[in-house]
Every structure is written in C-alpha cells, then in structure tokens.
C-alpha cells in the first residue's frame, strides 16, 4: 500500500502521566457526584457518612485536578487563558468550564457539610441550595464522559474509531473507580454497612465497562490494534480487564455471596477497590498510549473514520 516512506501522517498526543491522572481523577469526580447524589437526603447514618465522605473527597479532587492540568500546561496563567472564552465546539473548553462549575458545586456542597458539622458558621450552609447536589451529579456525569468525547473527537484513528465506546466506557470506569474509592474511604471510616451497595454499583459499572470494551474490540477493526495488541494490549488485559474488572468483580461477588470474617472482608474490599482503581488508571493510560501508537501508522490515517 502506498505511503510516504511509512512516515506518520498524524502527530500523536504529547500527553504524559499528568494528563492520564487528570482524566482518571475526572472520571472519579464524576462517579463521586453520582454517589453523592444517591446518598443525598437519606436518613440512614451510613448514607450520611457516605455523603460526607464523597463530598469532601470530590471537593478535594476538584481542588487538586486543576494543578495537575496546570502541571501539564507549565504556567498557571496559561490555565486562565482557557477561561477567556466558552467554546461549545471544543470539548476541552467545555471540560474546563465543567471542571470549574463542578468545583463550584462540589465546593458549595462541601461547605454545606462543613456548616452542618459546625466547622464553619451555619449561615454558610445557604451558599449551596439543595439543587447543587443534582447539579454536581450532572456536572460529574459530564466530567466522567467529556474526556472520552475529547479524545474520540480527534484525528487519531484509534480514538476516533471509539467515538461510541470510549466515552461510554470512560463513564463506566469513572463510576467503578469512584465506587471503589468510596468503598476504600468507607472501609477506613468503618462505615461497613454501605459497602455492599457501593460494591454492587461498582460491579454494575464494571460489567457494563467490560461489555463495552469487548464490543469495541469486536467492532473496532484495525484501528484498535494499538489498544488491544502489543505492549499496551497486554497491560490493558492484565491490569484493567483482569486485575481491574474480573478479579474485583469476583471478589465483590464473593463478598456479596458469603459472609466473611470482618477483617478478612475488609481486606477483600480494600484489595478489590485498589485493583479497580489501578485498572481505571491503566485504562486511561492505555487510551493515551494507544493513541500515540495509532498516530504513528499512516495507513489507518489515510482514510479516517467518520
């Protein structure tokens, strides 16, 4: 097949671990928004505890994610350049505004918690009307999903091929990771009662995620090779599919089916959650790395996916 000395046609992403981390944390923030909504306004103490944990964590993540982005950009004022416009056509522009608004909502909700706990004056509770909770959840869903849109709405053939799948399994992965993180936090908090539900949510998200990834592999064709084959494919299989989905799923299933001793059960939870989080990170990392490899192959770039 004709090419120009097999030189790459496209330029690959210059993105490294900081962008991977940003995408990973963005997914978790999205999932936390959902869990925070699910736990909202419930009388059960374990739900209150969960609500508090997710809100504080979401806010913490909202606070550290911009610096991670800035670390990629190099200089803080360059971050603010993104705030000079709102560009509907640019997922990254919308994403930044999503992050800003999410941070606002998460902040407001965190302040509400603080006020409820009496750490800050009660007055401040009214900073956040109750609508901020579903708003945060909605923005969270956007946060978890837009990164998938962001990469699939590019010229990189592998990413572009995944325009249906990548955004969807990114959301699932975010939700699974958020559930796993919430499980971890709840374990540390001793909030054991909420864990089965979190684990069920994680199982559901993981199941959907793995189904979508499998479908992607089936339909994707040659352009998905960098993702599923070679070094990236092996890592994806070991850390995300097996280590990050199948094993935690099994562990969670065991936890749901059998009553284990408390400490063993806690160990099981921690192991499952950690594996899920690692799998979530590796998924994002694999996406980026496969994008780089995909850009190097001119043949798949000559006829670009619609």
């Amino acid at each position: 097949m004709k090419s120009y000395y097999d030189r790459p046609l496209l330029k690959g992403p210059h993105w490294g671990s900081n962008v991977v981390t940003y995408l990973f944390l963005g997914g978790i923030m999205g999932g936390l928004g959902l869990i925070s909504l699910l736990a909202d306004d419930r009388p059960e103490p374990e739900m209150k505890k969960l609500r508090k944990a997710t809100r504080y964590t979401a806010f913490a993540l909202a606070a550290i994610n911009p610096p991670i982005l800035i670390s990629h950009l190099g200089r803080p004022e360059r971050f603010f350049n993104m705030l000079r416009i709102v560009k509907f056509k640019s997922p990254m522009s919308l994403g930044v505004w999503g992050l800003v608004l999410y941070s606002g909502a998460a902040g407001a909700n965190a302040v509400r918690e603080l006020a409820d706990d009496g750490i800050v004056p009660k007055m401040l509770r009214y900073i956040a009307p109750s609508a901020t909770v579903p708003i945060q959840a909605l923005l969270g869903a956007f946060m978890a999903g837009y990164t998938g849109v962001l990469i699939s709405a590019t010229a990189i053939p592998f990413w572009a091929t995944g325009k249906r799948h990548i955004p969807a399994f990114s959301v699932c992965s975010g939700a699974a990771s958020a559930s796993a993180l919430a499980t971890l936090l709840s374990t540390l908090q001793g909030n054991h009662d909420v864990i089965p539900r979190l684990e069920r949510l994680e199982m559901a998200a993981s199941a959907l995620e793995v189904a979508l990834i499998a479908d992607f592999r089936r339909r994707g064709g040659a352009a998905t090779a960098p993702f599923f084959e070679g070094r990236v494919g092996t890592r994806l299989r070991d850390f995300t599919i097996l280590g990050g989905i199948v094993v935690p799923f099994a562990l969670n299933a065991i936890g749901g089916a059998f009553k284990l001793p408390k400490s063993l059960d806690a160990l099981r939870s921690i192991a499952a959650s950690t594996l899920t989080l690692v799998g979530g990170y590796v998924l994002r990392e694999s996406l980026i790395e496969a994008g780089k490899l995909s850009a190097n192959d001119p043949h798949v770039a000559f006829r670009q996916p619609s």
């Binding site: 000079r84 416009i85 709102v86 560009k87 509907f88 056509k89």
Partner: peptide, 9 residues
C-alpha cells in the same frame, strides 16, 4: 464575543 460555538477573539 466570547461565548458561542466558535468564539474568535
């Protein structure tokens, strides 16, 4: 100027 499909500033 600044909010839209493709702001051009």
């Amino acid at each position: 100027e600044r909010i839209g499909e493709l702001p051009n500033v």
